[in-house]
Design a protein around this nucleic acid. Sequence first.
DNA 1: GCCATGCATTGATTTAGATCAACCCCCCTT
DNA 2: AAGGGGGGTTGATCTAAATCAATGCATGGC
Lengths: 225, 225
Amino acid sequence: MEISILDKEQLKTGYLLAALGESEFDAVVAHGTIRVLAPGERLFDQGDPCTHFFCVLSGIVKLCRVAPSGEEKVMDLVRKGHYFAEAVMFMGGRYPVHARALEVTRLAALENQHFLGLLRGNGDLCLRMLSSMSQRVHGLINEIDHLTLHSSAQRVIGYLLEQLPQGDAPASVRLIVPKHIIASRLGIQPETLSRVLAKLRAEHLIDVHDDTILLNDVEAMRRLS
Amino acid sequence: MEISILDKEQLKTGYLLAALGESEFDAVVAHGTIRVLAPGERLFDQGDPCTHFFCVLSGIVKLCRVAPSGEEKVMDLVRKGHYFAEAVMFMGGRYPVHARALEVTRLAALENQHFLGLLRGNGDLCLRMLSSMSQRVHGLINEIDHLTLHSSAQRVIGYLLEQLPQGDAPASVRLIVPKHIIASRLGIQPETLSRVLAKLRAEHLIDVHDDTILLNDVEAMRRLS
DNA sequence: GCCATGCATTGATTTAGATCAACCCCCCTT
DNA sequence: AAGGGGGGTTGATCTAAATCAATGCATGGC
């Protein structure tokens, strides 16, 4: 499906393409398509040749890996307005993860080769790409650090604090994905997540109403994480 | 200390600067300096402002993080001919890890700003940088995957296989860093590493002589990892 | 020579978290 | 209303790896 005016607006405001000129932007988007995925539907698998990068327009995409045993580890959850697989574009090789929709999801699929062509002539864009990839590197280093140096409770707390909107308004977090997905994202079992939340509740650090979690003492939790 | 002709050769053959023209290369290296670190000496700390990137000329640099508890996790071991902290250059911000010499180590310190200036005028170099950072992203994703989806034995085996020189010559690995550093690199305790190696030895998968390890059945180990 | 220090190995014990299992609750279908 | 499935919680048990502890074994200083 072709990309509508409205969707173009959204693509333009995302960080990746924000600073492109009119004609450059059009060049990248011209060959792009819109895809709509059903819940659970496959976008690509680990090992597939990498031809496109994507921007989520609505819904959620899960990036994960699967162990030989069949167990899966969620590497990232990509939401509306965020790009993914841009970092992989350059090796030209293959996607390092599986991508699946978690719910009905609309996304824009943009062709690597057109974007690469653009980069060749736009040093400034290159630098911004480098910066964003550097940020990803930082993020991944952080992740490793958390997985090895922090307990499961600390990781859960860290995740909750990350989800917190910046304003120091009512500190509440909405879990928009099923808990077992979050558990995998954190590298723990659903049961463990459940127990950790129960414990935090018992200590009055959080209150849980359905899928929203109220953080009663952000400072205390920051000290713990 | 200034950079000698000999060291320049080494810098030039490293992947980062390999494809620079004569004048470009000189521009980057002109403001660079050589540093010699004693074993254990600090190069920079996590949180220090990021002003330089580095190339190891001899010796080994350890990149690590420290938990609130004081325990440390080795994120990477950088050896002769390899660059580090180039990925961080672009955010301009701060180093995300501590850097320490493990033994007497010589390295070249190059200024971010000169390299960035160069990138601005060299789209091709930009693309190569992007590719190398993409590789780093892949590597880190792999690492996370191993830390969450694989047992300690599998990680040890994976590490040994990684260290293997490509040729299918005698499959032996030389452990050039102390075992407890490798253990941290793998996210396990030294005792556990010792036990894993003992077990592999008992199963005749490896032979250990001092600090060199002979892999008797690479295929079998590949299946296990 | 002797002692101190740091690394590695091995054994005993503990523990965080995984696994196994039962159950509930909510929503959907028929 | 009955049945059924998925997700979540809770409890009991198990296990991989951490921790604690003792010993061996080099190396270096004096």
